[in-house]
């Protein structure tokens, strides 16, 4: 009898629009999931459409020309691409070791009560908006670099024949090195939080076995943790690189905006994103605007590839940990 009533209730629920409601809700959520794909598709279509005039005029040479002349309407992407890659490279060079140190400290050394607050504080570095790093870099960090760091670099490393060309020129404060360094601080939390997450996935029994055999902490990190999490660590680094490549405001403030390629990393330069931020609203003429959009498209392609690789690596690690 009771079972009958329960069954009636179920039937009643179905009857009162259960199936229709399910159909509607399922398809509604599906449409919004589809929207995520459409946004990406829209971004690609809009960028390609906007970039077409420039790509048609300059062809593949757009990628390899370092001319950027709004007056004669001759544009090439080499200088911004070069600047993007060099600043990101500096950011990685400084950021990766520091992020690694932070991750090792939080997972292996730090007492448990300190773990959470410390991790939060490092992650707050990522929460600070990029324009704040920009204004801080311009007014505080760049003058400091100009006064204390660059003169020393010029006097020491700058004197080495050949290699010294990297550190040639007057100390301006702003420039590629300063921008790269600020980028390093900005990507540090992203890289270190991924490294921390993947370090936590190492089975305790592996580490305990190593400690049981008398290994020191640094040996456990190098011979147990790192080999076990290698893919994840590289994935985290790539994710940080993706961020560094597309970072805009902080770089715009301290890079000095010069459309040229200089060997010296103390000199001003430009990146794709900084060129866009500086010139887009002031660009006169269709070809100028289209060239800037073409720059944006190049940036999109580069970051998409880097981020996709990062994601695939992290997925691989996740599958292994899950399976």
């Amino acid at each position: 009898m009771a079972a009958d009533i329960a069954l009636q209730r179920v039937a009643g629920a179905r009857g009162r629009g259960g199936a229709v409601g399910d159909f509607l809700f399922h398809h509604l959520t599906f449409l919004f999931a589809l929207l995520v794909l459409l946004i990406l598709g829209g971004v690609i279509v809009a960028l390609v459409e906007g970039a077409l005039p420039a790509l048609r005029t300059f062809g593949i040479g757009f990628l390899f020309s370092d001319v950027w002349n709004p007056v004669t309407e001759k544009f090439g992407a080499l200088a911004p691409i070069y600047g993007t890659l060099v600043t990101s490279a500096i950011a990685m060079l400084v950021g990766i070791p520091v992020a690694f140190g932070v991750a090792v400290f939080i997972t292996e050394i730090c007492p448990i009560w300190l773990k959470r607050p410390l991790a939060t504080m490092i992650e707050l570095l990522a929460a600070i908006p990029s324009i704040i790093y920009g204004i801080w870099g311009l007014f505080v960090f760049a003058p400091f670099v100009q006064q204390y760091i660059q003169p020393n670099l010029i006097d020491s490393l700058g004197q080495i024949p050949g290699f010294g060309a990297l550190f040639a020129g007057p100390p301006l404060g702003i420039g590629v090195l300063t921008a790269g360094f600020i980028l390093a601080i900005m990507v540090l939390p992203f890289i270190s939080s991924i490294m921390r997450d993947v370090f936590e996935t190492v089975p305790a029994i592996l580490k305990e076995s190593a400690y049981g055999l008398g290994a020191t902490r640094s040996e456990v990190v190098r011979q147990i943790v790192l080999p076990y999490t290698r893919i994840g660590v590289v994935g985290g680094i790539m994710l940080g690189l993706g961020r560094a490549l597309g970072e805009t405001m902080a770089v715009t403030f301290v890079l000095g905006h010069a459309h040229r390629i200089s060997i010296s990393i103390l000199q001003p330069g430009t990146t794709i994103s900084a060129s866009l931020a500086n010139e887009f609203t002031e660009a006169v003429g269709d070809l100028y605007l289209s060239s800037l959009i073409a720059l944006g498209f190049i940036l999109f392609v580069i970051t998409f590839i880097v981020l996709a690789i990062a994601k695939l690596m992290l997925l691989r690690l996740q599958r292994r940990a899950g399976g």
Binding site: V36, A46, L47, L239, L245, F280, L299, F304, L307, K311
Partner: peptide, 20 residues
């Protein structure tokens, strides 16, 4: 996968998209 990429994609690209 695409959502995770959009999550880290440069925000200036989003600006360009909406501009277009």
């Amino acid at each position: 996968f695409i959502n995770d990429i959009l999550l880290s994609a440069p925000s200036i690209i989003v600006g360009l998209f909406v501009y277009e």
